[in-house]
Amino acid sequence: MTLAIELEGLSKSFKDKKAVDNLSLQVPAGSIYGFLGPNGAGKTTTIKLMLGLMRPDNGRGKILGLDIEKESESIRRRTGYVAEMPHMYGYMTVQEIIKFCRPFYPVWNSGLVEKYLDFFSLPLKGKIKNLSKGMNTQLALILAIAPEPELLVLDEPTAGLDTINRQELLRIILEEISVQGRTVFLSSHLLHDVERVADQVAIINQGKLIDVRSIDDLKSSVKKVRVVFQKEVPDDLFSLPGIQSYSREGKAYLITIEDNLQDVLNAIKNYPYFALDIIDQNLEDIFIDKVRRSKA
């Protein structure tokens, strides 16, 4: 399996704050990879390290097989990037920024540019400083996909978009990048943005990687079990491996289990119970739960 992104022990500190802390990631080529974490978790710093805007204190990284420190220019030639708040030249018109960006790349798909300028109804002669936040993001997206990049990196792309535009953005990513077999790296603090489209998600908090999984795996490996016992049960039942947390109300328990559902269920069933439900976990809950636990 070829990797589009390969980070190894990447670290970056600002003064005494560790923004990225020994981060390792493997993003398979052709996948849509969700990079999730709350605001300030280190997502943007990681992306800046990947694109050569910043240099790591420690660790190495390869993008499309190229070294992030030594071959940054080649990486950027083959990578599209949409920043969280794209700051483009406000004095230029839409047409002018397109003309400005075009000569930097070996490939430029003008048909694609026209298609989406039209689709978003972006004013060709409108100055960038007069565009709305959403239009600004849409324009940055067009500039990012026009060179037909092998990798598209999006940092919180839906920040300025309403629900309809979010869905459209995801569809364009699928249609123009993913369906063509190219890779998408999608950072967000909202699980909602990535759960629809991502193959895999990495969850990051305080610069550290908490978990990497496929979304399907995340959904099937983390369950909550609601059980009402007939009698008191010993406390050590809840120290079984796989039990992440539990809460009780009298003889009713709500148990969060990860990866070891069957063993835990068997152990629980050793005690007589009135009711036992296995609850499929909503991704949002899993995400919030994981982030909260990583802080503790």
Binding site: K48, E73, R76, R77, H87, M88, Y89, G90, C101, F104
Partner: peptide, 14 residues
């Protein structure tokens, strides 16, 4: 200052 530098430096230029 107006943050266009990061836009410029993410183009493939040295």
């Amino acid at each position: 200052n107006n943050k266009t530098m990061s836009f410029l430096l993410t183009r493939p230029v040295s």
